[in-house]
């Protein structure tokens, strides 16, 4: 009798857990676009936001695209996600990790000329952690070193 009650409780708790997890997964799925912190360039290209709406644009700063304009303060660069590219203009102080070939999130508005006017830049870094001394080696050397230390 006691064993039966225990099984009944177990079944009830498992059913409740499955229901809660299902509800959570459903909510996360429904939120998948709203909960995103930024749009990637291909989303901006497919569905451009209204010119005056504040949005965030995130992607990689394309190598070789970073230029300082004639006034010496404004910078221009291109953010890409491999499928689309959006030119960005920004005037202000950039975070210390803002470099070409790395991730960036720009807060601002889409201009009528197709350029994104950023009010603020955030640097986004990736999941790789590489010691500074190893960066100057060639990729093959770095792999050797990693292998040796493992």
């Amino acid at each position: 009798m006691a064993v039966k009650a225990k099984h009944q409780r177990l079944v009830l708790v498992v059913i409740a857990l499955v229901a809660i997890l299902g509800a959570g997964a459903l909510a996360a799925w429904a939120l998948r676009s709203q909960a995103s912190y930024f749009y990637v360039p291909s989303e901006i290209a497919a569905k451009p936001p209204e010119p005056d709406r504040a949005v965030r644009l995130g992607g990689m700063v394309e190598r070789g695209s970073l230029k300082t304009e004639a006034d010496g303060v404004t910078i221009a660069f291109v953010v890409g996600d491999g499928k689309a590219r959006v030119p960005v203009r920004f005037k202000g102080i950039t975070p210390s990790l803002f470099v070409e070939g790395s991730g960036v999130v720009a807060e601002g508005r889409m201009g009528a000329d197709g350029t994104f006017n950023a009010d603020n830049l955030l640097a986004k870094h990736d999941e790789r952690y590489v010691p500074r001394e190893m960066k100057d080696m060639t990729a093959a050397q770095a792999r050797e070193t990693v292998k040796e230390t493992q």
């Binding site: 909960a35 995103s36 912190y37 986004k124």
Partner: peptide, 9 residues
Amino acid sequence: WWNSLHQPP
């Protein structure tokens, strides 16, 4: 799931 400023694991 979502684009975030935090990097993946």
